[in-house]
């Protein structure tokens, strides 16, 4: 029986290639389940999961909740609008209070990088990182690479261009790690003000011209411009960002080959990508969302398999 090498899913950086392949294989099975009339299995009926969201989220929270319910887990949700727990109870206290009600697994999104690791070190529960600051968002990267594998039949050797705000993006970092572990080539594209100065130390190249980048790639992952995370202006206006880094159908059609368009959502239509692309056959954006549930089911299932349970 194969199992994960880790006890928590904190980031792709900690996973092995074998872990990722195991998650994919498990997700394949769950994807079949999701296409049945009864989209539910009893695997986690003895498990209680808490979804703790210290930062706004719609799709990730729904995706996790659905994954948990389809595995028959008991689910509780906690959302705190406050960006910092500093104002009142500490994070450890908040989580320990919830764990005292006999919770086994915690899915957490938090605005601070490292928060998931901090929690894993300080509380007795399995942790799934649903995004921590600009650090990692492992399940997003897993579902992204899973979707590439589904669309192109493989990940190894595929050329992926990640476009946009790399500086503030946990999705970019997790995607870089996941794609590299699976043998894909990664280039990044975006304004230099949104590119971490030392990003090339991760073994990726940087391309500042969008067209050149698109001509190179097989897949373009167009990241969301996260204005809410920018304390200062990194580009003068959205209009100018779109002029330089926005993708529309005209540009896509002028490329010498067909490429796949991805977006982690939510889309700013007309900013990163135009509506005609978002809704076109080039885009696999809704497949990504669908695969998200299967991937999260796989992650939760595999973590629960490592727990001491009486079945």
């Amino acid at each position: 029986m194969s199992s994960l090498s880790v006890d928590h899913i904190l980031g792709i950086k900690d996973l092995t290639k074998e872990d990722i392949e195991l998650i994919f294989k498990t997700a394949d099975n769950f994807k079949d389940v999701l296409n049945r009339p009864i989209k539910k299995v009893p695997s986690l009926r003895d498990i209680t999961v808490a979804n703790l969201f210290f930062e706004n989220s719609t799709r990730t929270r729904l995706s996790f909740e659905l994954a948990e319910k389809r595995l028959s887990a008991d689910v509780i949700n906690f959302s705190a609008a406050s960006s910092s727990v500093k104002k009142g109870e500490t994070l450890i206290d908040t989580v320990n209070n919830i764990l005292a009600m006999k919770v086994d697994l915690v899915v957490m999104r938090h605005p601070n990088a490292g928060a998931a690791k901090f929690l894993a070190q300080n509380v007795k529960a399995r942790i799934v990182n649903a995004g921590d600051g600009a650090h990692e968002h492992p399940t997003q990267a897993l579902l992204d690479t899973f979707s590439i594998r589904e669309k192109l039949g493989k990940v190894e050797g595929v050329k992926v261009l990640i476009v946009g705000d790399i500086l503030h993006s946990r999705v970019a970092l997790s995607n870089i790690f996941a794609l590299q572990k699976l043998g894909a080539e990664v280039k990044l594209c975006g304004p230099p003000t949104l590119m971490p100065k030392h990003i090339e130390s991760l073994g990726v190249e940087v391309e500042y011209d969008l067209r050149t980048g698109l001509e190179w790639c097989d897949v373009a992952n167009m990241l969301r411009i996260q204005l809410e995370r920018q304390e200062i202006k990194y580009f003068p206006s959205l209009r100018e960002y779109t002029m330089m880094y926005g993708l529309d159908l005209k540009m896509l059609n002028s490329l010498s080959k067909e490429i796949v368009i991805m977006h982690p959502g939510p889309i700013n239509r007309g900013v990163e990508i135009s509506t005609d692309i978002a809704d076109s056959e080039h885009a696999i954006i809704l497949d990504q969302v669908e695969n998200g549930v299967a991937i999260r089911m796989a992650v939760l299932y595999l973590l629960a398999e490592k727990m001491d349970r009486q079945k």
Binding site: K13, A113, G114, D132, G133, A134, H135, E136, R170, L173, P196, K197, H198, I199, S201, L202, E231, I232
Partner: peptide, 21 residues
């Protein structure tokens, strides 16, 4: 330095923490 919590370098790139060059 912009409220950076660590040095801007290879490690801050890996950690996604706000950095101070």
């Amino acid at each position: 330095s912009h409220h950076g919590v660590m040095h801007e370098g290879v490690s801050s790139t890996l950690l996604g923490l706000k950095s101070d060059p």
